[in-house]
């Protein structure tokens, strides 16, 4: 009986291995997106507070002029596990923005920490009109709405490494994926920009970042390179935090839960073994 099982097992395994190269060959025109080392990757990963603050600066100074982030509230920026600005900083930041509020005198009032991040356009149509017909997607959960694919059988490993950084990997690749002039044979309509990683390659967004475009605030200047690669890493991390603000506390709870379950399982095993030792089974 065991023999038959092991033969079948061996057959299945060999089929899988034989299949791997054949399946890996199904490529698309887009090169595979590399997995980047993120501080928040894996079960032990947490956000790098300084990186989130830098990423926020990129978002505020560059991205937010076209992209909304309607689910993020100013108060989130001071919550533990995030960029952790002080409450005073957040209040001052919110006050810089005008919030549309029908109850306020004149329909506008300065922002408070409880307000959501104000959108740059009042509606989708206005956003399209200002961006050559393309709609800049909302940033709130964008980092989780994008992903990467790995060829068979490597994606199976993702379930064991808890790989959840496909979004930031894609965003980083996209921001560094502009090619100008476009490669030979690629047709890019007017007003679009060739991007290696964008599906279809014709991206409405012009390259938003350039080396040295943003000077990081005090404490950071000098120690962090002012390059597109660095900006894109920082803003991708910030976007991941925006999409998953409770990642750190979630993982902390996870360790406690799994430790408890392992201990409980061990005790239950002993209970079961003791109980069944009296029964021949």
């Amino acid at each position: 009986m065991i023999k038959t099982k092991s033969i079948i097992g061996a057959l299945l395994v060999s089929i899988l291995f034989a299949a791997a190269p054949a399946m890996a060959q199904e490529g698309h025109a887009t090169p595979e997106i590399k997995k980047e080392p993120w501080s928040f990757a894996g079960p032990f990963g947490t956000y790098d507070r300084n990186q989130l603050q830098r990423g926020f600066q990129v978002f505020k100074e560059v991205c937010s002029s076209c992209h909304s982030a309607r689910l993020m509230a100013f108060r989130n920026l001071s919550e533990p596990g995030g960029p952790e600005f002080t409450e005073g900083q957040v209040k001052a930041l919110a006050a810089e923005y005008e919030i549309t509020d029908p109850d306020a005198e004149g329909g506008k009032r300065p922002g408070i920490a409880a307000d959501r991040w104000p959108s740059p356009f009042t509606n989708d149509q206005e956003a399209r009109d200002a961006n050559g017909g393309a709609l800049p997607p909302d940033f709130s959960v964008l980092a989780k709405a994008r992903g990467t694919t790995q060829p068979f059988p490597w994606w199976i490993l993702n379930y064991f490494t808890a790989y959840s950084e496909g979004g930031p990997d894609y965003i980083h690749a996209l921001l560094n994926g502009y090619v100008d002039p476009p490669p030979e044979g690629a047709e890019v309509p007017e007003g679009k920009h060739y991007n290696t990683y964008f599906p279809g390659h014709a991206l409405g967004m012009a390259p938003p970042l350039s080396d040295g475009a943003i000077t990081y605030e005090e404490g950071e200047s000098g120690s962090v390179p002012l390059t597109v690669d660095q900006y894109s890493r920082d803003v991708a991390s910030f976007m991941m935090w925006m999409a998953e603000p409770h990642l750190v506390s979630r993982k902390e709870a996870g360790f406690q839960v799994i430790a408890f379950l392992v201990l409980f399982a061990g005790l239950m095993y002993l209970v079961k073994r003791k109980l069944w030792s009296r029964v021949e089974h």
Binding site: K144, N158, Y159, A253, G254
Partner: peptide, 10 residues
């Protein structure tokens, strides 16, 4: 629990 706490979207 592994999926819930470490890879809820996978």
């Amino acid at each position: 629990a592994w999926f819930v706490f470490f890879a809820p979207d996978i």
